[in-house]
């Protein structure tokens, strides 16, 4: 069960942010922002290990004392980030991957919505609810 999910656009600005616990949102925002540095590093074409990785899933970006941050970047340069609490040992890599895939599906649906203009923040309540249920595993 993840505690926070974020969708960051091509220009590195947040398009969507949700936390299971709204009090922690600010702290998580800081953490997600700093994880963008690592994502950039991984996507950097001069980085040798980066070009070998053909997967959209980037794996664990870095670990913090209280949480672990995972990243996933689509071909359209949209970044998905999931934050998992470190005490949660049950969540395995496969499950995180599938969470990302579901998030990607949701996002693709959102982009197909003609009322949503790509590049703007996502304000749909249904989207919020769907993402929350994906990360809390209640799908």
């Amino acid at each position: 069960m993840a505690v926070c999910a974020a969708i960051v656009g091509k220009d590195n600005s947040p398009k969507f942010f949700c936390c299971v616990n709204p009090d922690e949102e600010l702290a998580f925002q800081f953490k997600v922002l700093s994880s963008l540095d690592i994502i950039e590093e991984k996507l950097n074409p001069t980085n040798k290990s980066a070009s070998d990785n053909r997967e959209l899933y980037l794996g664990q970006l870095y670990s913090l004392e209280t949480c672990k941050i995972y990243g996933y970047v689509t071909n359209t340069k949209i970044k998905f980030i999931i934050v998992v609490d470190s005490t949660n040992m049950a969540l395995r890599d496969n499950e995180i991957r599938s969470m990302f895939r579901r998030m990607h599906s949701e996002y693709a649906d959102m982009v197909s919505n003609p009322f949503y203009i790509p590049g703007e923040a996502i304000t749909s309540k249904m989207f919020d609810a769907n993402i929350k249920s994906i990360i809390t595993g209640t799908v």
Binding site: G9, D11, N12, S13, P14, L26, Q29, F30, L33, L36
Partner: peptide
């Protein structure tokens, strides 16, 4: 930095 990345809430704080 926050502003240039568009993280307005963090910038505001």
């Amino acid at each position: 930095t926050f502003e240039s990345d568009g993280w307005h809430e963090l910038a505001a704080q």
